[in-house]
Design a protein around this nucleic acid. Structure first.
Length: 439
RNA sequence: GGGGGCGUGGUGUAGUGGUUGAACAUGCGGCCCUGUCAAGGCCGAGACCGCGGGUUCGAAUCCCGUCGCUCCCGCCA
């Protein structure tokens, strides 16, 4: 017999069906047993009259909640049943995998164990409705991101995550043994995305793992995460990149709202707001002034960028002044940016770069890249870098590399902001942090 | 790397110096209940209060150390 999904039971009244799922609740009474079964589409009541089959009744009594079951029985309409006004009269039960009792924690309780304990039992934690929604949303988010990229002629790439030389700073790299040599886990696809520009792909994107060896203990950092990256050629400046990001994010929000808006409202009490275009853009030095004028005290050493409190303050300003949840902080001073960011032609102290804050959280960094070989070389040298150590990268700019720019965004950070999640651990399938390598 | 907070039955909490009552919720086990549906009722098991040391007549409670978790800062996505 073919399996029927619980959501489809309404169309099967008076038919005998097979449903499979987890024992959500067992109500074991004197003469009746009610098994609430849960599959990915919903909950349904399975009823069993004990006297009809005492041996089966005894077996049911031993079942622990969360056991994996298959039930065969007749679907009957019954107005008094609160779950869809129908129930299944149990005829046959297959215990596919009994759950031991007690469970490590109660999945359906209002109060949940702390995050760390739930991470130990993540597969059980994920059975709850909220995580199921989160990952349905993530799937839609990634799908929408891809669709938008494809509609705009991007090529998908998969760059290597094992690197022979540290890219960029080198401080936050995981080192590994690679046969007889040392190698590093990529902390960004940055250089390889840019190679796509030198390769004439014109527009590339990548969705892939990113590794950071930072011992960061916060609610928004991980040592391994999924990066959403793209790079595009023939731009005028960094505003072209921001223009693209806006449209891309708007499309993602629209898709999520259409597909999951009701569930998100129902389960998280959150109304998805599709952002309007354009997003506010504020140059960094102006942002610092605004934050100061609002009475926020930046740490004295912060003259070139904002601290997280400053970011939240500017986000609050933008929300009040423009009613917007997003803001681009643009034109960062060179001190706060890597050597490959292009500098302003009329002000070499500033770069053609930006960060994107969403509800005060940094979710994205981007820039126009310096594509002129001599200029790039000079910028690297002026920051004390050794271009020879990354000659493969410098070579990209020797034989006709177009002007280009792009950005990198954290998938889980975006999901966090989108769904108002308090901790990035809730927004990732399996969390990796300085103290978390299992499961 | 720096700082704050927390650590009590499986889980979530209460208790913050005093007599063997460490409580509550939930889960677990048993019994009861004519179909339940956030089911309900009764009974029961389950914690030497993270670990080590100290102060005190007396420590879950105060102090020191240590480990674990968590949040903030730094760093970033």
């Amino acid at each position: 017999m073919e399996r029927t999904l619980i959501a489809e039971l309404g169309q099967k009244i008076d038919q005998t069906v097979k449903i499979s799922g987890w024992l959500h609740v067992l109500r074991d009474q004197k003469s009746m047993q009610f098994l609430i079964l849960r599959d990915r589409t919903g909950l349904a009541q399975v009823a069993h009259w004990k006297k009809g089959n005492p041996a089966l009744a005894e077996q049911i009594s031993t079942l622990g909640t969360e056991s994996a079951l298959t039930c065969i029985g007749k679907v009957v309409a019954n107005k008094s049943v609160k779950l869809g006004e129908l129930e299944i009269q149990l005829e046959q039960l297959v215990v596919e995998n009994a759950a031991e009792t007690p469970l490590p924690f109660e999945l359906q309780n209002e109060t949940l164990p702390n995050v760390d304990f739930r991470m130990d039992w993540r597969y059980l934690d994920l059975r709850r409705a909220e995580p199921q929604l989160i990952f349905d949303v993530q799937t839609t988010l990634e799908m929408a991101a891809r669709e938008y990229w494809l509609q705009h002629d991007f090529v998908e790439i998969h760059s290597p995550k094992i690197m022979g030389t540290p890219s960029e700073s080198g401080a936050e790299l995981f080192e590994m043994t690679y046969f007889e040599r040392k190698a590093y886990l990529a902390q960004s696809p940055q250089f390889y995305k840019q190679m796509g520009m030198a390769a004439g792909f014109e527009r590339v994107f990548e969705v892939g793992p990113v590794f950071r060896a930072d011992p960061s203990f916060t609610s928004r950092h991980m040592t391994e995460f999924t990066g959403l990256d793209f790079e595009m050629s023939w731009i005028e400046n960094h505003h072209d990149v921001m223009d693209f990001i806006e449209g891309w994010l708007q499309y993602i929000y629209q898709q999520v709202k259409v597909k999951h808006g009701d569930r998100i409202q129902e389960q998280l009490g959150l109304e998805i707001t599709v952002p309007t275009l354009p997003f506010p853009r504020i140059p960094m030095l102006e942002a610092i002034e605004i934050v100061r004028s609002m009475g926020y005290e930046l740490p004295v050493e912060k003259t070139k960028d904002l601290d997280p409190g400053g970011e939240r303050t500017i986000a609050q300003y933008v929300k009040e002044k423009f009613g917007h949840d997003f803001v681009f902080i643009t034109d960062w001073p060179i001190e706060a940016r890597p050597f490959y960011h292009m500098r302003m032609p009329d002000n070499p102290k500033l770069t053609r770069s930006f960060d994107l804050l969403a509800n005060g959280l940094e979710i994205c960094t981007g820039a126009q890249r310096e594509h002129r070989y001599e200029v790039l070389m000079a910028q690297a040298l002026s920051l004390g870098l050794d271009p020879a150590a990354m000659s493969f990268y410098m070579d990209f700019f020797r034989y006709g590399c177009p002007p280009h720019g792009g950005m990198g965004m954290g998938l889980s950070r975006l999901l966090m902001v989108l769904l108002g999640l308090p901790n990035i651990r809730e927004a990732v399938y399996l969390f990796r942090g300085p103290n978390r390598l299992h499961p």
